[in-house]
Design a protein around this nucleic acid. Sequence first.
DNA 1: GTCGATATCGGCATAGCTTG
DNA 2: CAAGCTATGCCGATATCGAC
Length: 315
Amino acid sequence: MDIEVRHLKLIATVAQEGSLSKAGQALHLTQSALSHQLRDIEDRLDVALFLRSNKKMILTPAGEKLLQSATTVMRELESVNRQINQIARGESGTIRLSTQCYTCYHWLPEILRKYQKEFPHVDVKIIVEATHHPIKALQEGKLDIAIVHSQKNDGLIRKPLFKDELKVIVSPKHRWAKRKYIELKELEDEPLYLYNVPEKDSHLFQEVLIPAGVYPKNISHIQLTEAIIEFVKAGLGVGIMATWAAKPHVDNGSLVAVRLGKSGVVRQWSAAVLPNGTMPRYIESFINEIVSFSKPAKQHAFSRNEKRKNNNLFF
DNA sequence: GTCGATATCGGCATAGCTTG
DNA sequence: CAAGCTATGCCGATATCGAC
């Protein structure tokens, strides 16, 4: 490469200052050093960049062309420099994020809005295709943060975020509507509307039903929360979902949420990251944002009795 | 790792030119 | 003619590279 950054600085500074001597002062070099540089680049390009006339350095057409490019290139270099400094200070970067269930995306936008006010240079990408298998995607380097409820010993670092509870959602007219809790066995013969999640990726199956030896016979898999809710409202069966997913409908009395099992099914959610290297500040701050977002919610979501029992439950 | 050859860069000194 | 400018030869410091 013939042209170097020092040459671009030289061209721009001499054009601005009008002489090698003044440019030398601006660049903290001697006039002689700049003269050497200028001769060097003119020799390499085999063209004059300045006309030396009347003690003034006047750009030739070739010099004008180089000055235009120099301005663009130096602006770009300054921008890259700034961005790299931001990355070094942990203020800039990309967060590739996925969760273990689609309904989590319901509360992400509010967190993102708040977070991006503080970190406007961080690009948060939601990797929807990694939903249901975020751990695998994280281990393959396709994610930076996986928001998960599984607690397997897989070598990942997990920062606890919040707890939520899976409940049985029923119509107010359903025979279970007044019950304090539903025995797991009772689910076997009830028409059940569940999210369209493979059984192997389902917390409900892997952590609750299968260990209890419960195998529901009449399951309909549905992708959308709202669709599940409409089927349940219509009295066609019951659903199982996190309490916060059905909260507006429970609050307005169109649905009832009943505890699943005597002691309830509580999930501990956490932000999982790879164990290698130091966590950039912007990722740490993002995780803290989720934690602080989930904290005030527990103030209003449960009765005093439930609050005491389920400390740090989300929604 | 060390050494020597070579290249590169910038400063010093100075010649030569222009201007007021 | 002094002041201010550029060009240039020379030199030292430093970096780079290959051989041992």
